[in-house]
Design a protein around this nucleic acid. Structure first.
Lengths: 253, 253
DNA sequence: AAGTTCAGATTGTTCAACGATCCTTCAATC
DNA sequence: GATTGAAGGATCGTTGAACAATCTGAACTT
């Protein structure tokens, strides 16, 4: 079946950016070492097929359609998505670099599954990055982004939207890292959050714990707004310690 | 190109940099559908061809044979190394995930080159990770590893070995991050160090600056051994600030 | 000299194939 | 009956070739 019409047309739209008049007169990069702007690269960023495959798999991983330990067969995914095996393979390389899947030579790729030390490991990264970012303070608009995430969480709580609560919490911590204004820290944090989303997807925590998050976030944000990043950092550190303990307990059962 | 002789034996058994992940004693995979043997992970893994290609390129990048901005043509490398284009492509994906090369759609891959904000960005990551790790103290044997790196630097200084000095300094900072005992932090640090090695390879700093490093490292290590990680963290932070300033100045010219 | 067209080169993607490796099944042996 | 060992099948790793899409550079026109 050469996928005349495959049931799941996941890769549908070919997003062709026409880029009308915006083609700026870029200069020649004149050999090696020229700072050919990545800015220009960001404008015409057309995601390759492999990138779209990776994005699709990432989505399925985040939504819990693919559980940890599940096997991903190259040929199956290639057929399902209507792309070639080589392309799927490239997407796998991308996901493996993000630790979302692991490759077993000659056996295949599997959705990453949590090992005993991983919880502490992930929290070690979060402690390092988040606390460092929050202690540096941040511009008013970035603090405002943190505030926005807090309010998003409150709204989700009022609406009893459990998924919205989880998202809001991730936005909150993402906004904290964004305080530092570092692209690299942002991507590291995004990867860690993706890992956590994968691992703890169905680790349904009770509502009581969610309320705890909300109060913590509010207090941290308040300290930040009050111009006391040191205190905000201490609060955040305490929160992360508690959160790790909680997750360890939930996962140890 | 730099390869004068184009023998297909280029892929020799070089140093393999893969982190095998020595986590043992895992119990059962909670809720996973497929049985995922941990024993398979402990098996001696022969690096794939793509991994060897990536390792070879990484080596050439670290040694400065490939300068930032240089273009890497798929077909050329495939021929030089005696592998197929697809394999080279997979190696590129690996290196791109490590930020050592950048892909320009339909134009090719280029050795990553430093942009204005990148220096601050890299140092933001280092500040977060290194300071967090050193503030947590560390087991005696890990502190001993830091000490060993300090002594390695002294020995290189005594021998006027400039390259050895640089290596020792990287070992020193790597050992500091290793204090935290986190696999993820270690790999992040390794990537950052690889980036710096790439960017600042020919930024030959004068001997005076090297001496400054040595004194700093000694002082930081001493504070650590004296059981005062807080002070060690402050010293390290000050050092990183100075180092960033220095690198910015060198690169701004 | 400036703008347009066109051919060449390189990438992106697909396809088909082969050997290598692993898992499973099943028979043979002790 | 349990362990060993040999097919059998499935999947991966890698290759080589092919084609379309895109970019580059130079010739050509105005």
């Amino acid at each position: 079946m050469t996928s005349s019409e495959s049931g799941s047309r996941v890769l549908s739209a070919r997003q062709q950016t026409a880029a009308p008049g915006a083609a700026a007169g870029n200069k020649r990069d004149a050999g090696a070492g020229a700072a050919l702007g990545a800015a220009a690269r960001l404008r015409v960023a057309v995601p390759s097929v492999a990138d779209r495959v990776a994005a699709e798999l990432r989505l399925q991983l985040a939504e819990g359609l693919l559980l940890p330990g599940a096997r991903l067969t190259e040929s199956t995914i290639a057929e399902d998505l209507g792309v070639s095996r080589n392309t799927v393979r490239e997407a796998f390389a991308e996901l493996a670099a993000e630790r979302l899947v692991v490759r077993h030579p000659n056996r295949g790729v599997f959705v990453a599954s949590l090992e005993p030390g991983d919880i502490h490991d992930v929290y070690a990264v979060r402690r390092a990055i988040e606390v460092s970012a929050i202690r540096g303070g941040g511009s008013p608009e970035r603090v405002a982004a943190v505030r926005a995430a807090v309010e998003e969480g409150k709204a989700a709580a009022a609406a009893d939207d459990e998924e919205g609560l989880g998202n809001a919490n991730q936005h909150f911590h993402g906004a904290i890292v964004a305080l530092a204004g570092s692209r690299r820290l942002d991507t590291i944090m995004a990867q860690v959050l993706a890992e956590m989303r994968l691992f703890f997807h169905k680790a349904t925590l009770d509502a009581h714990f969610y309320r705890g998050w909300l109060a913590d976030n509010e207090e941290i944000c308040a300290a930040l707004e009050a111009g006391d990043p040191g205190r905000a950092g201490d609060l955040l550190l305490a929160y992360l310690d508690r959160s790790e303990e909680r997750q360890s307990a939930v996962h140890a059962e």
